[in-house]
Simulated assay, not measured.
Amino acid sequence: MKTQNYANHRKFYPLHHFIYLPLLMILEVLGIRKIFTDESNQLTWILFSVVIALLLFLAIMLRQHYALGNQNRIIRLEFKQRYFELFGKSSDQIVEQLNFGQIAALRFAYDDEFKMLLEKALSHQISGDEIKKSITKWKPDFNRV
């Protein structure tokens, strides 16, 4: 397995991203093209295009909505657990000072860097992307949705 870092940490689901969604997009382009070229069945192609557009929208939104909502809850819980293990106290006040992007970015740092970057995030309000770019030794997360 490749070493994970900032440049390659995104994850794709091939069936969804490279087959199903492109197929829907091709059908949508075909339907829109046919609206203007097949005037005898124009209403049928309009209906076809609307249905494909709705399927495309639903496919993107539903897949992401449930998985990401669940993943975000788990990331917050992991942060709280890790904070407790490192500092021996509740993280409730700290979590209120950070946005989700910062919390999510901190999971890629090992413990020593985690402490330093957490302090930097709290004192300088650096973004999650800046936190990720600041990590020198990337802690991979291969269990994401």
Results as ranks from 00 to 15, higher is better:
K2V: 11
K2D: 11
Q4V: 08
N5D: 14
A7N: 14
H9K: 11
H9W: 07
R10K: 10
R10M: 07
K11Y: 11
F12P: 01
Y13C: 06
L15A: 14
H16N: 09
Y20V: 13
L21W: 03
M25F: 13
M25G: 09
M25Y: 09
I26K: 06
L27H: 00
L27W: 01
V29G: 05
V29R: 09
L30W: 08
G31A: 10
I32R: 01
R33E: 03
K34Q: 15
I35C: 06
T37L: 12
T37I: 14
D38Q: 10
D38W: 02
D38F: 04
E39Q: 13
S40T: 12
N41P: 02
N41E: 13
L43T: 14
T44I: 12
I46G: 02
I46R: 09
F48C: 06
F48L: 10
V50P: 00
V50D: 04
V50Y: 08
V50L: 15
V51E: 07
V51G: 06
A53D: 01
L54Q: 08
L54Y: 11
L56Y: 06
F57M: 14
L58F: 15
L58K: 10
A59G: 14
A59Y: 04
I60C: 08
M61R: 15
R63C: 04
H65N: 12
H65C: 08
Y66W: 14
A67T: 10
L68T: 09
L68E: 13
N72A: 09
N72V: 00
N72Q: 10
N72W: 00
I75C: 01
I75P: 01
I75E: 06
F79K: 01
F79A: 00
F79H: 00
K80T: 06
Q81D: 13
Y83F: 15
L86K: 02
L86R: 03
F87V: 07
G88Y: 05
K89H: 09
K89P: 00
S90V: 03
D92G: 07
D92Y: 11
V95D: 01
V95N: 00
E96G: 01
Q97R: 15
Q97I: 03
Q97E: 15
L98F: 05
G101D: 11
Q102F: 03
Q102M: 09
Q102I: 03
A104Q: 00
A104T: 04
A104P: 00
L106I: 10
R107A: 07
A109P: 03
Y110D: 09
Y110G: 07
Y110I: 03
E113P: 04
F114G: 00
K115N: 05
K115E: 10
M116W: 07
K120C: 02
K120S: 02
K120H: 09
S123L: 09
S123E: 12
S123Y: 05
H124I: 08
S127W: 10
K133G: 08
S134R: 07
S134L: 08
I135N: 03
T136M: 08
T136G: 05
K137G: 00
W138Q: 05
N143V: 06
R144F: 04
R144N: 08
V145I: 10
V145R: 02
